[in-house]
């Protein structure tokens, strides 16, 4: 079963809002799932609590956003991979703690800017963005604190943090592909993002990664439903139980 929503061909305003909500909702849903995979594996107990807090905030955002589009569970559990609109960055596997922190830094910085600008618009997502931006500010702070400690910690942590930042760099360009229904200044967001991330990396004694911010064929891919290999596996695990009992309530 798939949803009837087809954002590309729909012109009316509700559908455009729904497409935007789906993109942001999928980002939050998928990143929340990845962070949930840390449960029981965090490097220190205090981080178990911190990572779960972030995952729960994101899951809460996802549920609100997906509910604007349709039934949250149908959307989460019954769509095929190609129907997900999240950016590829959030679906990347956790890797080590530094890798997860790099992903958090890149994404939470983006999300905070995006929600911040969105909250200033008079669009239908403004109210939700205003609430979410407070949560996301904390996620960004968490990511920055750890980026600095790992980058400017031991030689090993520095290397790991640099590797994490480098490896995920090519997934960062995609975030700034304009999303239909979100009427904000995308180039301005990208410039602010770059300035913010650069400042943190410098404070962390890390090099700003060089190289392309998008893959050769993948520009804007996640938003159009093209994902990376690990995402299929993630969805298989996430959806398996729900799909095994068609029509059941939980």
């Amino acid at each position: 079963m798939t949803t009837s929503l087809n954002p590309a061909s729909s012109a009316d305003a509700d559908a455009v809002t729904a497409a935007a909500a789906l993109a942001l909702g999928d980002d939050a849903l998928v990143l929340s799932h990845r962070l949930g995979e840390w449960a029981g594996h965090a490097p220190v107990l205090e981080e178990e609590v911190a990572l779960a807090n972030i995952a729960l905030d994101l899951l809460g955002q996802a549920r609100v956003l997906l509910s604007l589009v349709g039934d949250e569970d149908e959307l989460a559990y019954l769509r095929e991979e190609r129907a997900f609109r999240n950016v590829q960055l959030v679906e990347q596997p956790n890797g080590d703690f530094a890798h997860t922190i790099a992903r958090q830094l890149y994404f939470s910085t983006y999300q905070r800017l995006l929600y911040g600008r969105l909250a200033e618009t008079d669009g239908p997502l403004a109210g939700l963005a205003a609430k979410a931006v407070k949560e996301v500010a904390y996620h960004q702070d968490h990511a920055e604190q750890w980026t600095v400690r790992l980058g400017d910690g031991t030689a090993e942590s520095h290397d790991r943090m640099q590797q994490g930042c480098d490896a995920l760099w090519r997934h960062t360009g995609e975030m700034f592909q304009p999303v239909d229904g979100i009427d904000i200044d995308w180039p301005e967001i990208e410039a602010s993002w770059t300035a913010s991330v650069t400042a943190v990396l410098e404070r962390a004694t890390l090099a700003v990664p060089e190289g392309p911010r998008t893959g050769a064929w993948s520009a804007g891919a996640g938003r159009q439903g093209l994902h990376t290999e690990p995402f299929g596996r993630m969805l298989a695990e996430m959806q398996h139980l729900h799909r095994s009992h068609p029509g059941a309530s939980w």
């Binding site: 220190v44 205090e46 609590v49 911190a50 807090n53 702070d141 968490h142 604190q145 400690r149």
Partner: peptide
């Protein structure tokens, strides 16, 4: 009480642990 490497993280850990 809790463990933290420094005051900044101690504050954040405290927020997550004691005021969630």
């Amino acid at each position: 009480s809790l463990h933290a490497p420094d005051a900044e993280l101690a504050l954040r850990n405290a927020r997550d642990l004691y005021t969630r």
